[in-house]
Amino acid sequence: MTAGPWKMESQRSYFGRALVDLGRRNPNVVVVGADTTESLKSIDFGKAFPDRFFQLGIAEPNMISVAAGLAAAGKIPFATTYSVFGSAHTYNVIRQNVAYTNLNVKIFCSHAGLTVGPDGATHQINEDIGLMRGIPRMTVLVPADGPETARAAEAAAGMKGPIYCRFSRTNVPTVTSDQDGFAIGKARTLRDGSDVTLIGCGLMVARCLEAAQALERERVSARVINLSTVKPLDLPMIDRAARETGRIVTAEEHTVVHGIGAAVAAAIAVNHPVPVAMVGVQDVFGESGEAEELLRKYGLTAEKIVDAVHDLLKRGDRRK
């Protein structure tokens, strides 16, 4: 895998097409929306299958519980909205009506993280991964790009149980290919390396690949893992990375308080302690700005990943 220039593509467009495709193949797939369906492209499903599409207005708690009721009667509902509404605003509904009830509800949300951009901090949720991975029975997916978002939707429809999936509003570099496949619970090594492992999710996977290429020029060999399933964690792959490369850097468009960095660090501390550095949003809210400007201001860049690797290299070698 070489770093860029990649095609910039919309995860929402891939998601919209995937839903229509799923709808064609499985009559039990239904979609509920909350006045954001044009934005999510879930409206395409509504146009193709008007009898299986429910526009429920700006009432996300109701949307989640309606999805739960549909699932209890055998449907496979995709609940679609923005991440801030599909996680934080509806947290206890998801907890009681979806996860505790153990229903086959797929919550697919765009507009995750800082790159929502000019809408500002009210819409830039950097806490959803942590909220969702804390709920028992919940599977949490963070696809890296458009094609992987489509594969995540497909895999979600084929798995029984509650799923939360978050992706971006902004176009993101396409770094995966169809040959990569997608299995829930399996991380994927995009590039091998022996000095450090960069574990990223979402749009930070591309930045990990860029960082790996920059490190290569310094003769530092960086492995890159796409952690598209945050829960359940692919523990064997993380454990192997810790043993074989001795250093881990995580990268996420999410708070480091309880995101993938925290999840990976906890797993490593228990199984095979090696130094870990986390690139992500610190314990702060975002602000208005363009997506790229925000990523730079809040330190979510390939350069910051490289800096983190340099810091770890100074701490010596822990490989065993």
Binding site: D51, F54, S65, A73, V93, Q96, T101
Partner: peptide, 25 residues
């Protein structure tokens, strides 16, 4: 038992989902 409840106010929404499914089928 058909639903989890305890946090108030979720049951009617859940029932709407059930009723929609029955109608669809």
């Amino acid at each position: 038992v058909e639903n989890a409840a305890g946090a108030e106010g979720q049951g009617l929404s859940f029932s709407v989902g059930l009723a929609l499914a029955a109608r669809m089928d």
